[in-house]
Amino acid sequence: MDISVVVPLYNEDESLPELTAWIDKVMTENNFSYEIILVDDGSTDKSWEVIESLRLQNDAIKGIKFRRNYGKSAALNVGFEATQGDVIITMDADLQDSPDEIPELYRRIKEEKLDLISGWKKKRYDPITKTIPTKLFNAATRKMSGIELNDFNCGLKAYRSDVVKTIEVYGEMHRYIPVIAKWAGFSKISEQVVEHRARKYGTTKFGFSRFINGFLDLLSIFFVGKFGKRPMHFFGSLGVLSFLAGTVMALYMIGIKLYHIAAHIPYKREITDQPLFYIALVAIVVGSQMFLTGFVAELVSRNAPERNQYLIEKRTP
């Protein structure tokens, strides 16, 4: 099969018939063999009834329904597991992504041998309350990941099959799939300017909390990807630095006190009366705790079942 189109959705019963018909038209015109996997993330409208009806009209349409709303990341992860195509396309169900972009995305994945192409909605129809935070998050993600993309959270993306079968998406991490793919060893990541259409039906399903959750997930991805198998390198390094800083401050105060005693110079301030003493004490305690945290995390990591599981791309015969 050439292409699998994964569409996560939540309360999009109005847009599904038009979206699937549009995808079918594009696939037919380009002679692609394809499947459309519609993942209903616990919709409370008639989305599932629409999916069942569309399935009767087109065998290429497949539906998966969650018992409750788990979020877009969960829907994508389950959709990825069900795919059979060589190239996987993800797109939103609200008709803001254009299926007309699919042939070019497929061509580039195949001809340029790319792992992932992320869409870039250069011209957006979103309100300023959404575009400004999005730009800030994109800038922060570029800085932390080293991946030069302008729009990490664009729903329209294309992947090689190996990518979606290897990575795991959970929490709110769907917006950072390029980062997850890079940490998994898929470094051939590119970008393509795509059309962003104004929403035709319904309203957006994402609130302000997604920005807070997104930032926390970015930190999680960065830490797990870089230190997941060697947590002592992170906690131990910070712990040692904090402990040494506190020790140096304590020795400095003791040295000053001893100098005044040896030189018979009056020194009325007690060490415990100085703010620096408490700063040093806190630094030593925090450093010790972070070092012990790293030690415990290292023990947990070394005893984890997946401690020696690594992603192997190829083997010689």
Rank of each mutant, 00 (worst) to 15 (best):
D2E: 13
I3F: 04
I3W: 03
V7A: 10
P8D: 06
Y10W: 15
N11G: 10
E12N: 14
E14Y: 09
S15E: 11
L19E: 13
L19T: 06
A21Y: 07
A21W: 03
K25L: 14
V26T: 15
V26Q: 12
N30V: 13
N30S: 15
N30A: 09
F32Q: 09
S33M: 11
S33F: 11
Y34K: 07
E35D: 15
I36A: 06
I37T: 13
D40K: 01
D45H: 12
D45S: 14
D45C: 06
K46T: 13
W48Y: 11
V50N: 08
V50E: 12
V50D: 07
S53T: 13
L54V: 07
R55E: 14
D59H: 09
A60W: 01
K62A: 04
R67H: 10
R67V: 07
K72Q: 05
K72A: 07
S73Q: 08
A74M: 05
A75T: 03
N77G: 02
V78I: 10
V78Y: 04
G79T: 04
F80I: 08
F80G: 09
D86K: 15
I88H: 13
M91V: 14
D97C: 15
S98Q: 11
S98K: 13
D100H: 13
D100F: 10
E101R: 10
I102M: 12
E104C: 10
L105R: 11
R108W: 10
K110A: 12
E112C: 09
K113R: 15
L114P: 08
S118H: 05
S118P: 04
S118T: 13
G119K: 11
K122F: 05
D126R: 14
D126C: 02
P127Y: 06
K130F: 05
K130V: 14
T131Y: 02
T131D: 02
L136P: 00
L136Q: 03
A139K: 10
R142G: 03
L149K: 08
N150Y: 12
N150H: 14
K157N: 14
V163T: 03
I167G: 01
E168G: 08
H174R: 08
Y176R: 01
V179E: 01
A181V: 00
K188V: 00
E191Y: 01
V194I: 13
V194E: 01
E195T: 06
A198L: 07
A198Q: 09
T203W: 04
S209P: 01
N213W: 03
G214L: 02
L219T: 03
F222K: 07
V224M: 08
V224T: 07
G225T: 09
F227Q: 00
G228L: 01
G228D: 00
H233E: 11
F234S: 01
F235L: 06
G239F: 00
V240H: 04
V240K: 14
F243G: 03
T247H: 02
L251D: 09
L251A: 12
G255L: 14
I256E: 13
L258V: 10
Y259E: 10
H264S: 11
D273T: 05
Q274I: 06
L276W: 07
I279C: 07
L281Q: 10
V282R: 05
A283R: 03
I284H: 03
V285F: 10
V286P: 03
G287W: 08
S288P: 02
S288W: 04
M290L: 15
L292Y: 11
F295V: 05
L299P: 03
V300C: 02
A304F: 05
R307S: 08
L311H: 09
I312N: 00
E313P: 01
E313G: 00
R315P: 02
T316R: 09
P317A: 09
